[in-house]
């Protein structure tokens, strides 16, 4: 086995890095774009479901709980593959990006709904009563009194969940989404050198490490209620 230089030549080969940097860059953009899209739609859908659950209509609540349970019990890759093969059959042949985006959004929505619902139900009943007793309609009370407090309480758990799910954009490579991992795998096998993989790995860490540190800071400093 070679010494240090061999290791670096293998994993940190600057030539190969330069050669494939553009391809990896394009992949990284797709990773970021997909991740951002998932965060927005997943969180909003989760918020919507939590609000619907607060309506306290039994059949609706049961449907939402079932949805959340199922999507939290299934591995994200399974959700992705099922939709990837399933959607074309019901007449919806979607691109790899759309399938990845939908699967991860649904998965995040399930977690987001549970987090926000936990926030809502942790509030004392008196908050809703006070708001309603001043004539506020149900939705106004939710919008101005309940949700601001509930979402605030849910933020630390929610941030962790968001980070977990968005890291799964790498799963898109399994259905040929040309995101960063996919680009890196292609580059590595073409060049017969693992440097692109290493670059991709470091890029992922660079993207997500700030988020992880931020969520750590949030947990320590978030003022409850």
């Amino acid at each position: 086995m070679d010494g240090n230089s061999g290791f670096f030549y293998t994993f940190f080969n600057l030539e190969i890095a330069a050669q494939y940097a553009p391809a990896l860059g394009a992949g990284a953009l797709i990773t970021l774009g997909t991740g951002a899209a998932v965060v927005v739609t997943g969180t909003l859908l989760g918020l919507l479901l939590a609000i619907l659950r607060a309506l306290d209509v039994r059949p609706l609540t049961m449907a939402i709980v079932a949805f959340a349970d199922i999507l939290r019990s299934l591995p994200p890759l399974v959700i992705l593959i099922v939709l990837y093969f399933g959607l074309p059959e019901i007449g919806l042949p979607l691109s790899a990006f759309l399938v990845t985006w939908i699967s991860l959004s649904l998965a995040l929505a399930a977690y987001a709904e549970e987090s926000i619902w936990a926030g809502i139900s942790s509030l004392p009943a008196g908050q809703m009563e006070a708001a309603r007793s001043t004539g506020l309609a149900w939705w106004s009370a939710m919008r101005w009194v309940i949700l601001p407090q509930a979402v605030r309480r849910a933020v630390p758990t929610l941030t962790n969940r968001i980070i977990s799910i968005t890291k799964n954009t790498a799963l898109g490579s399994v259905v040929s989404l040309n995101e960063l991992l996919n680009a890196a795998q292609g580059a590595s096998s073409m060049s017969g050198n693992p440097t692109p993989l290493m670059m991709a790995a470091m890029s992922y860490v660079i993207i997500f490490l700030p988020l992880v540190v931020f969520s750590r800071w949030l947990e320590k400093n978030w003022v409850r209620g």
């Binding site: 086995m1 890291k167 790498a170 991992l181 693992p194 993989l197 992922y204 997500f208």
Partner: peptide, 24 residues
């Protein structure tokens, strides 16, 4: 800890699985 929390598991697996042989 934070490093590995930021590292997508699939990427880590691919790196270990395909990269290790290069270490001989």
């Amino acid at each position: 800890i934070d490093f590995f929390r930021a590292f997508p598991p699939l990427v880590l697996l691919i790196l270990v699985y395909f990269g290790w042989p290069f270490l001989g």
